[in-house]
Design a protein around this nucleic acid. Structure first.
Lengths: 119, 119
DNA sequence: TACTACTATGTGCATGTTGAATATAGTAGT
DNA sequence: ACTACTATATTCAACATGCACATAGTAGTA
């Protein structure tokens, strides 16, 4: 699932600014339960997204606890999300193709089956 | 699409033995048109699959042209394919989750929209 | 004969993505 | 003091993939 988390982060940030730790919670319904979430990947991905101009961040201090880096999606980020959606639709189609062929009866020829039984 | 070609190869070999170059042609309907197929990855993957015991190979000579290494799926390989199908079903579900949320109307709160308009 | 195209299999190196472990630091409760 | 929770980030290693290149047989053709 190459860069799947990235798409989920774009999707979550589309609904409003959020900091990394908060995004971690919101990622759960996308298959990133705490035991399946690598927080290193999460923070690293957010930094990369900002470096590419798809999000911008600001430090939010004053609240209790450590300071939060709050990310906000940019126009370029929103465009990038739409490209990612196309990619996901293509991936889905390819997976469905495999699942469909898997469920088909085997196309193994009769002669090949005979060969197999003979061994 | 982490190791997607591997699953396609299992699926094709389920229908009978085949050599790498022949598998390349059969991969086309799975999104591996010649310009999208990396033959290095193809041959490398087949060698790895044999090393793991999921396929076995024999050299087929006598025909015209260079000799062919013909791969045949093993019982372990067939079992591995079934595990891969489970993985693909899970991947498909996660992708569908993202696509569904994407199509939902934005959950951005009214107050956040006001903030945005104010800037 | 030399050249080109197609068939056929592989290796070496570089890049990109991810996971595990670790570091740092603030706050709250016992 | 200690523990737990919140919060962000780096380093190193492993894994997957792409690109370039090497090798070799056969067939057609100029």
């Amino acid at each position: 699932m190459e860069r799947f988390m990235e798409v989920c982060l774009f999707l979550l940030l589309r609904d409003g600014p959020m900091h990394g730790y908060g995004l971690a919670e919101q990622l759960i319904p996308f298959g990133f339960a705490p035991e399946d979430l690598n927080v290193s990947t999460l923070y690293r991905t957010l930094r990369k997204m900002e470096h590419e101009g798809f999000v911008i961040s600001d430090w939010q201090e004053g609240e209790q606890g450590p300071r939060k880096r709050v990310y906000k999606i940019t126009t370029e980020g929103e465009e990038n999300l739409e490209e990612w959606i196309q990619v996901l639709q293509y991936r889905k189609a390819r997976i469905e193709k495999v699942l469909a062929v898997y469920k088909e009866p085997s196309k193994k020829s009769f002669s090949k089956v005979i060969d197999e039984v003979a061994t």
